[in-house]
Design a protein around this nucleic acid. Structure first.
Lengths: 169, 169
DNA sequence: TATTGTTATACTCTATAACTATA
DNA sequence: TATAGTTATAGAGTATAACAATA
Protein backbone atom coordinates (compact mmCIF):
# COMPACT_ATOMS: atom_id res chain seq x y z
CA UNK A 1 0.00 0.00 0.00
CA UNK A 2 2.75 2.45 0.85
CA UNK A 3 6.21 2.30 -0.68
CA UNK A 4 7.38 4.97 -3.07
CA UNK A 5 9.44 2.61 -5.19
CA UNK A 6 8.11 2.32 -8.68
CA UNK A 7 9.01 -1.03 -10.09
CA UNK A 8 6.42 -1.70 -12.72
CA UNK A 9 4.50 0.77 -14.84
CA UNK A 10 5.78 4.30 -14.63
CA UNK A 11 2.93 6.06 -16.36
CA UNK A 12 2.78 9.45 -17.98
CA UNK A 13 1.80 12.50 -15.97
CA UNK A 14 3.76 13.49 -12.92
CA UNK A 15 2.23 13.21 -9.49
CA UNK A 16 0.40 10.11 -10.56
CA UNK A 17 -0.37 7.40 -8.06
CA UNK A 18 0.99 3.93 -8.51
CA UNK A 19 -1.55 1.69 -10.16
CA UNK A 20 -2.14 -0.38 -7.04
CA UNK A 21 -2.50 2.64 -4.78
CA UNK A 22 -4.89 4.34 -7.13
CA UNK A 23 -7.17 1.34 -7.38
CA UNK A 24 -7.04 0.82 -3.63
CA UNK A 25 -7.95 4.42 -2.95
CA UNK A 26 -10.75 4.37 -5.46
CA UNK A 27 -12.10 1.20 -3.92
CA UNK A 28 -12.16 2.64 -0.44
CA UNK A 29 -13.76 5.78 -1.73
CA UNK A 30 -16.59 3.91 -3.38
CA UNK A 31 -17.00 1.44 -0.56
CA UNK A 32 -17.17 4.30 1.91
CA UNK A 33 -19.74 6.06 -0.24
CA UNK A 34 -22.10 3.12 -0.06
CA UNK A 35 -21.50 2.74 3.65
CA UNK A 36 -22.30 6.39 4.26
CA UNK A 37 -25.47 6.30 2.17
CA UNK A 38 -26.61 3.18 4.00
CA UNK A 39 -25.84 4.80 7.35
CA UNK A 40 -28.14 7.67 6.42
CA UNK A 41 -30.90 5.11 6.61
CA UNK A 42 -29.46 3.51 9.72
CA UNK A 43 -28.43 0.32 8.04
CA UNK A 44 -25.02 -1.30 8.12
CA UNK A 45 -23.18 -2.67 5.12
CA UNK A 46 -24.23 -6.12 6.23
CA UNK A 47 -27.91 -5.22 6.32
CA UNK A 48 -27.52 -3.46 2.99
CA UNK A 49 -25.97 -6.55 1.51
CA UNK A 50 -28.83 -8.63 2.83
CA UNK A 51 -31.45 -6.31 1.37
CA UNK A 52 -29.53 -6.10 -1.90
CA UNK A 53 -29.45 -9.84 -2.30
CA UNK A 54 -33.15 -10.11 -1.58
CA UNK A 55 -34.13 -7.70 -4.33
CA UNK A 56 -34.42 -10.46 -6.87
CA UNK A 57 -34.59 -13.58 -4.70
CA UNK A 58 -36.56 -15.23 -1.92
CA UNK A 59 -33.99 -17.63 -0.55
CA UNK A 60 -34.07 -19.91 2.45
CA UNK A 61 -31.77 -19.17 5.37
CA UNK A 62 -29.33 -21.74 4.08
CA UNK A 63 -29.25 -20.29 0.59
CA UNK A 64 -28.90 -16.84 2.03
CA UNK A 65 -25.97 -17.97 4.13
CA UNK A 66 -24.24 -19.19 0.99
CA UNK A 67 -25.04 -16.01 -0.92
CA UNK A 68 -23.67 -13.83 1.85
CA UNK A 69 -20.82 -16.18 2.72
CA UNK A 70 -21.91 -16.28 6.34
CA UNK A 71 -22.60 -19.06 8.77
CA UNK A 72 -26.25 -20.07 8.98
CA UNK A 73 -26.36 -18.95 12.60
CA UNK A 74 -25.04 -15.50 11.64
CA UNK A 75 -27.59 -15.37 8.87
CA UNK A 76 -30.35 -16.36 11.23
CA UNK A 77 -29.51 -13.48 13.53
CA UNK A 78 -29.07 -11.05 10.67
CA UNK A 79 -32.51 -11.89 9.36
CA UNK A 80 -33.97 -11.70 12.85
CA UNK A 81 -32.70 -8.16 13.32
CA UNK A 82 -33.90 -7.10 9.89
CA UNK A 83 -37.26 -8.67 10.59
CA UNK A 84 -37.52 -6.82 13.90
CA UNK A 85 -37.03 -3.62 11.93
CA UNK A 86 -39.73 -4.60 9.47
CA UNK A 87 -37.38 -4.82 6.49
CA UNK A 88 -37.78 -8.50 5.71
CA UNK A 89 -40.28 -11.24 6.45
CA UNK A 90 -39.87 -14.93 7.20
CA UNK A 91 -42.27 -17.02 5.16
CA UNK A 92 -42.65 -20.69 6.14
CA UNK A 93 -41.91 -22.98 3.24
CA UNK A 94 -44.87 -24.94 1.96
CA UNK A 95 -42.80 -27.85 0.74
CA UNK A 96 -40.40 -28.37 3.64
CA UNK A 97 -41.70 -27.57 7.07
CA UNK A 98 -38.18 -27.06 8.41
CA UNK A 99 -37.48 -24.23 5.98
CA UNK A 100 -38.36 -20.58 5.80
CA UNK A 101 -38.09 -18.22 2.90
CA UNK A 102 -36.85 -14.71 3.45
CA UNK A 103 -38.45 -11.89 1.50
CA UNK A 104 -38.20 -8.12 1.41
CA UNK A 105 -41.12 -6.19 2.84
CA UNK A 106 -42.31 -3.05 1.11
CA UNK A 107 -40.34 -1.03 3.64
CA UNK A 108 -37.23 -3.06 2.94
CA UNK A 109 -37.63 -2.72 -0.80
CA UNK A 110 -38.17 0.98 -0.48
CA UNK A 111 -35.11 1.38 1.72
CA UNK A 112 -32.78 -0.53 -0.55
CA UNK A 113 -34.08 1.40 -3.53
CA UNK A 114 -33.28 4.68 -1.83
CA UNK A 115 -29.81 3.62 -0.75
CA UNK A 116 -29.20 2.28 -4.22
CA UNK A 117 -30.32 5.44 -5.90
CA UNK A 118 -28.22 7.76 -3.80
CA UNK A 119 -25.19 5.53 -4.10
CA UNK A 120 -25.52 5.42 -7.87
CA UNK A 121 -25.93 9.16 -7.93
CA UNK A 122 -22.72 9.54 -5.94
CA UNK A 123 -20.74 7.34 -8.25
CA UNK A 124 -22.23 9.02 -11.30
CA UNK A 125 -21.26 12.38 -9.89
CA UNK A 126 -17.78 11.13 -9.30
CA UNK A 127 -17.54 9.89 -12.87
CA UNK A 128 -18.88 13.16 -14.19
CA UNK A 129 -15.60 14.74 -13.18
CA UNK A 130 -14.11 13.06 -16.22
CA UNK A 131 -14.70 14.05 -19.82
CA UNK A 132 -17.22 11.89 -21.61
CA UNK A 133 -14.55 10.16 -23.66
CA UNK A 134 -12.44 9.41 -20.59
CA UNK A 135 -15.46 8.12 -18.76
CA UNK A 136 -16.24 5.73 -21.57
CA UNK A 137 -12.64 4.62 -21.72
CA UNK A 138 -12.59 3.99 -17.98
CA UNK A 139 -15.83 2.04 -18.12
CA UNK A 140 -14.51 -0.07 -20.92
CA UNK A 141 -11.24 -0.80 -19.14
CA UNK A 142 -12.95 -1.67 -15.88
CA UNK A 143 -15.36 -3.95 -17.70
CA UNK A 144 -12.56 -5.75 -19.43
CA UNK A 145 -10.61 -6.06 -16.23
CA UNK A 146 -13.58 -7.58 -14.42
CA UNK A 147 -14.38 -9.85 -17.33
CA UNK A 148 -10.82 -11.11 -17.48
CA UNK A 149 -10.79 -11.70 -13.74
CA UNK A 150 -14.15 -13.45 -13.82
CA UNK A 151 -13.09 -15.71 -16.64
CA UNK A 152 -9.90 -16.61 -14.82
CA UNK A 153 -11.97 -17.53 -11.78
CA UNK A 154 -14.91 -19.18 -13.45
CA UNK A 155 -17.30 -16.62 -12.03
CA UNK A 156 -20.52 -15.57 -13.69
CA UNK A 157 -19.89 -11.86 -13.84
CA UNK A 158 -23.25 -10.77 -15.11
CA UNK A 159 -25.18 -12.86 -12.66
CA UNK A 160 -23.57 -11.25 -9.64
CA UNK A 161 -25.76 -8.95 -7.64
CA UNK A 162 -24.02 -5.66 -7.30
CA UNK A 163 -24.52 -4.58 -3.71
CA UNK A 164 -23.12 -7.90 -2.74
CA UNK A 165 -19.48 -7.69 -1.79
CA UNK A 166 -17.56 -10.76 -2.87
CA UNK A 167 -16.75 -11.89 0.63
CA UNK A 168 -15.86 -15.23 2.00
CA UNK A 169 -15.28 -16.47 5.54
CA UNK B 1 -27.08 -0.86 -8.32
CA UNK B 2 -29.25 -3.18 -10.37
CA UNK B 3 -31.51 -1.82 -13.13
CA UNK B 4 -30.85 -2.68 -16.74
CA UNK B 5 -31.90 0.70 -18.06
CA UNK B 6 -29.03 2.53 -19.65
CA UNK B 7 -29.58 6.24 -19.40
CA UNK B 8 -26.15 7.74 -19.58
CA UNK B 9 -23.08 6.40 -21.34
CA UNK B 10 -23.76 3.46 -23.60
CA UNK B 11 -20.19 2.42 -24.27
CA UNK B 12 -18.70 0.31 -27.00
CA UNK B 13 -18.46 -3.43 -26.61
CA UNK B 14 -21.58 -5.45 -25.95
CA UNK B 15 -22.03 -7.16 -22.62
CA UNK B 16 -20.36 -4.26 -20.92
CA UNK B 17 -21.36 -3.30 -17.42
CA UNK B 18 -22.83 0.08 -16.66
CA UNK B 19 -20.16 2.44 -15.44
CA UNK B 20 -21.51 2.56 -11.90
CA UNK B 21 -21.89 -1.21 -11.64
CA UNK B 22 -18.42 -1.83 -12.94
CA UNK B 23 -16.80 0.52 -10.48
CA UNK B 24 -18.86 -0.89 -7.65
CA UNK B 25 -17.90 -4.45 -8.50
CA UNK B 26 -14.26 -3.57 -8.85
CA UNK B 27 -14.35 -1.82 -5.50
CA UNK B 28 -15.84 -4.79 -3.72
CA UNK B 29 -13.38 -7.08 -5.42
CA UNK B 30 -10.40 -5.08 -4.21
CA UNK B 31 -11.86 -4.44 -0.77
CA UNK B 32 -12.51 -8.14 -0.39
CA UNK B 33 -8.99 -8.94 -1.48
CA UNK B 34 -7.51 -6.87 1.30
CA UNK B 35 -9.94 -8.31 3.80
CA UNK B 36 -9.02 -11.85 2.82
CA UNK B 37 -5.30 -11.18 3.00
CA UNK B 38 -5.72 -9.58 6.42
CA UNK B 39 -7.81 -12.53 7.58
CA UNK B 40 -4.95 -14.84 6.67
CA UNK B 41 -3.07 -13.15 9.48
CA UNK B 42 -6.14 -13.14 11.73
CA UNK B 43 -6.65 -9.42 11.62
CA UNK B 44 -9.84 -7.59 10.73
CA UNK B 45 -10.09 -4.65 8.37
CA UNK B 46 -10.29 -2.41 11.39
CA UNK B 47 -7.08 -3.74 12.90
CA UNK B 48 -5.44 -3.54 9.48
CA UNK B 49 -6.47 0.06 9.18
CA UNK B 50 -5.06 0.77 12.61
CA UNK B 51 -1.73 -0.85 11.77
CA UNK B 52 -1.66 0.88 8.39
CA UNK B 53 -2.11 4.29 9.92
CA UNK B 54 0.63 3.62 12.44
CA UNK B 55 3.22 2.80 9.82
CA UNK B 56 4.33 6.37 9.56
CA UNK B 57 2.89 7.94 12.71
CA UNK B 58 2.88 7.67 16.48
CA UNK B 59 -0.35 9.41 17.34
CA UNK B 60 -2.17 9.85 20.61
CA UNK B 61 -5.48 8.10 21.12
CA UNK B 62 -7.27 11.28 20.25
CA UNK B 63 -5.34 11.80 17.03
CA UNK B 64 -5.85 8.18 16.17
CA UNK B 65 -9.56 8.52 16.70
CA UNK B 66 -9.64 11.38 14.20
CA UNK B 67 -7.49 9.49 11.70
CA UNK B 68 -9.72 6.44 11.87
CA UNK B 69 -12.93 8.44 12.19
CA UNK B 70 -13.88 6.56 15.33
CA UNK B 71 -14.95 7.63 18.77
CA UNK B 72 -12.13 7.86 21.28
CA UNK B 73 -13.71 5.09 23.33
CA UNK B 74 -13.82 2.81 20.29
CA UNK B 75 -10.22 3.70 19.57
CA UNK B 76 -9.23 2.99 23.13
CA UNK B 77 -10.67 -0.50 22.89
CA UNK B 78 -9.22 -1.10 19.45
CA UNK B 79 -5.76 -0.21 20.70
CA UNK B 80 -6.26 -2.33 23.80
CA UNK B 81 -7.03 -5.41 21.72
CA UNK B 82 -4.10 -4.77 19.39
CA UNK B 83 -1.83 -4.28 22.39
CA UNK B 84 -3.03 -7.53 23.92
CA UNK B 85 -1.93 -9.20 20.70
CA UNK B 86 1.45 -7.52 20.84
CA UNK B 87 0.93 -5.53 17.65
CA UNK B 88 1.10 -2.04 19.12
CA UNK B 89 2.43 -0.43 22.28
CA UNK B 90 1.11 2.40 24.42
CA UNK B 91 3.87 4.87 25.28
CA UNK B 92 3.12 7.45 27.97
CA UNK B 93 3.59 10.97 26.68
CA UNK B 94 6.46 12.84 28.26
CA UNK B 95 4.88 16.26 27.77
CA UNK B 96 1.29 15.61 28.83
CA UNK B 97 0.78 13.04 31.51
CA UNK B 98 -2.80 12.45 30.42
CA UNK B 99 -1.74 11.31 26.96
CA UNK B 100 -0.34 8.15 25.49
CA UNK B 101 1.28 7.62 22.14
CA UNK B 102 0.48 4.52 20.15
CA UNK B 103 3.28 2.87 18.20
CA UNK B 104 3.70 -0.29 16.12
CA UNK B 105 5.75 -3.06 17.65
CA UNK B 106 8.12 -5.04 15.47
CA UNK B 107 5.50 -7.75 15.25
CA UNK B 108 2.90 -5.21 14.18
CA UNK B 109 5.18 -3.70 11.58
CA UNK B 110 6.03 -7.10 10.24
CA UNK B 111 2.39 -8.10 10.05
CA UNK B 112 1.25 -5.01 8.21
CA UNK B 113 4.17 -5.35 5.79
CA UNK B 114 3.14 -8.89 4.96
CA UNK B 115 -0.51 -8.02 4.47
CA UNK B 116 0.50 -5.06 2.39
CA UNK B 117 2.78 -7.09 0.20
CA UNK B 118 0.30 -9.84 -0.53
CA UNK B 119 -2.47 -7.34 -1.17
CA UNK B 120 -0.31 -5.41 -3.61
CA UNK B 121 0.62 -8.63 -5.31
CA UNK B 122 -3.05 -9.48 -5.71
CA UNK B 123 -3.91 -6.17 -7.26
CA UNK B 124 -0.86 -6.30 -9.50
CA UNK B 125 -1.88 -9.73 -10.66
CA UNK B 126 -5.35 -8.45 -11.37
CA UNK B 127 -3.93 -5.57 -13.39
CA UNK B 128 -1.65 -7.89 -15.30
CA UNK B 129 -4.71 -9.26 -17.02
CA UNK B 130 -4.71 -6.09 -19.08
CA UNK B 131 -2.25 -5.21 -21.80
CA UNK B 132 0.49 -2.85 -20.73
CA UNK B 133 -1.03 0.05 -22.65
CA UNK B 134 -4.46 -0.54 -21.17
CA UNK B 135 -3.00 -0.81 -17.71
CA UNK B 136 -1.29 2.52 -18.11
CA UNK B 137 -4.44 4.08 -19.44
CA UNK B 138 -6.45 2.75 -16.52
CA UNK B 139 -3.91 4.02 -14.02
CA UNK B 140 -3.95 7.41 -15.60
CA UNK B 141 -7.73 7.62 -15.64
CA UNK B 142 -8.05 6.47 -12.03
CA UNK B 143 -5.41 8.97 -10.95
CA UNK B 144 -7.19 11.79 -12.67
CA UNK B 145 -10.51 10.73 -11.24
CA UNK B 146 -9.12 10.69 -7.72
CA UNK B 147 -7.31 13.96 -8.24
CA UNK B 148 -10.46 15.64 -9.48
CA UNK B 149 -12.44 14.27 -6.58
CA UNK B 150 -9.78 15.30 -4.07
CA UNK B 151 -9.63 18.80 -5.46
CA UNK B 152 -13.39 19.11 -5.34
CA UNK B 153 -13.31 18.07 -1.70
CA UNK B 154 -10.18 19.85 -0.54
CA UNK B 155 -8.54 16.60 0.41
CA UNK B 156 -4.82 16.05 0.39
CA UNK B 157 -4.72 13.09 -1.93
CA UNK B 158 -1.04 12.33 -1.70
CA UNK B 159 -0.94 12.63 2.05
CA UNK B 160 -3.55 9.96 2.56
CA UNK B 161 -2.33 6.68 3.93
CA UNK B 162 -3.45 3.97 1.60
CA UNK B 163 -4.72 1.18 3.83
CA UNK B 164 -6.90 3.74 5.47
CA UNK B 165 -10.41 3.67 4.17
CA UNK B 166 -11.83 7.17 3.84
CA UNK B 167 -14.49 6.68 6.44
CA UNK B 168 -16.40 9.12 8.52
CA UNK B 169 -18.85 8.72 11.37
C1' DT C 1 -13.14 24.25 33.74
C1' DA C 2 -11.53 21.72 29.80
C1' DT C 3 -9.17 17.84 27.91
C1' DT C 4 -7.25 12.92 27.68
C1' DG C 5 -8.16 8.54 28.14
C1' DT C 6 -10.71 4.56 30.29
C1' DT C 7 -14.74 2.16 31.80
C1' DA C 8 -19.68 0.77 31.94
C1' DT C 9 -23.28 -0.41 29.08
C1' DA C 10 -25.69 -1.70 25.02
C1' DC C 11 -26.19 -3.27 20.39
C1' DT C 12 -24.59 -5.33 15.83
C1' DC C 13 -22.02 -8.82 13.67
C1' DT C 14 -19.62 -13.01 13.53
C1' DA C 15 -18.39 -17.95 14.64
C1' DT C 16 -18.72 -22.61 17.05
C1' DA C 17 -21.35 -25.83 19.34
C1' DA C 18 -25.49 -27.69 20.99
C1' DC C 19 -30.24 -28.26 20.29
C1' DT C 20 -35.20 -28.89 18.01
C1' DA C 21 -38.02 -30.17 14.51
C1' DT C 22 -38.48 -32.20 10.35
C1' DA C 23 -37.01 -35.24 6.47
C1' DT D 1 -29.31 -40.40 10.14
C1' DA D 2 -29.11 -36.05 7.89
C1' DT D 3 -30.73 -31.40 7.17
C1' DA D 4 -32.96 -26.64 8.34
C1' DG D 5 -33.02 -23.44 11.48
C1' DT D 6 -32.53 -21.45 16.24
C1' DT D 7 -30.25 -20.62 20.52
C1' DA D 8 -26.35 -20.26 23.82
C1' DT D 9 -22.09 -18.38 24.25
C1' DA D 10 -18.06 -15.69 23.27
C1' DG D 11 -15.58 -12.08 21.24
C1' DA D 12 -14.68 -7.92 18.03
C1' DG D 13 -16.27 -3.52 16.94
C1' DT D 14 -19.01 0.50 17.57
C1' DA D 15 -21.36 4.42 20.20
C1' DT D 16 -22.98 7.18 24.33
C1' DA D 17 -22.44 8.48 28.89
C1' DA D 18 -20.02 8.73 33.09
C1' DC D 19 -15.70 8.95 35.24
C1' DA D 20 -10.58 9.85 36.88
C1' DA D 21 -6.46 12.19 36.21
C1' DT D 22 -4.25 16.00 34.50
C1' DA D 23 -3.99 20.61 32.39
Amino acid sequence: MRSRTREKSEPGTRGELRAVDGLAQLSFLIHGTLERRAAEHDVSMTQTRLLGVLRDRTPTINELAKLLALDKSSTSGLVARAERRGLVARIPSTTDRRSVEVALTDAGRSLVAQVSASFEADVSKLLDRLRRSDRDALTSLVSRLLAAHATAHGVDLFATTDTQAPQRR
